[in-house]
């Protein structure tokens, strides 16, 4: 995490175990994005980034969870989400972050695209140790 969770508003944990869970996560992120007064464009970007990362957690990480909530720093408000799995990890991060590279049948744009959609992006992973991706979008 780059910024602390906003005081008095605990983040919530959502499981990522089946594709139906992605719908709930998108809805939860939308509600948080509205609460922190993100513009419509930024709401859509944050929801889309969350959708990408949650699907990666499900498909490549073999499932996991996301912790999502409001964050605040220097008088600014934002939404943060931390996606965690204990799957195989990503052996070559540079390759995974390359536009168009996929080990499955995707477009290979989820990870690299998600980074462009948010303000803060952090990827922690090691082979055999799982993957954690943290993202934040700040209200302007």
């Amino acid at each position: 995490m780059t910024a602390p969770w906003a005081a008095g508003e605990d983040p919530k944990v959502y499981p990522i175990a089946r594709s139906g869970d992605l719908v709930h996560i998108r809805q939860a992120i939308r509600a948080l994005a509205q609460q922190s007064r993100l513009s419509l464009v930024d709401q859509t970007k944050m929801i889309t980034a969350a959708s990408e990362l949650a699907r990666n957690t499900l498909i490549y990480g073999g499932g996991g969870k996301v912790t999502a909530g409001l964050v605040s720093a220097n008088g600014r408000r934002g939404v943060a989400a931390v996606f965690e799995d204990s799957g195989p990890g990503i052996p070559d991060v540079d390759q995974a972050m390359t536009d168009g590279w996929t080990s499955g049948g995707g477009l290979g744009l989820g990870l690299s695209g998600a980074r462009r959609l948010v303000d803060d992006f952090r990827l922690d992973t090691a082979p055999g140790e799982g993957t954690t991706v943290s993202i934040t979008k700040w209200a302007r």
């Binding site: 970007k45 889309t48 477009l107 744009l109 462009r116 959609l117």
Partner: peptide, 13 residues
Amino acid sequence: SPQIAQTIVALGI
């Protein structure tokens, strides 16, 4: 919509 158009561009699709 404009927000979806911008998101698609940022994603790189």
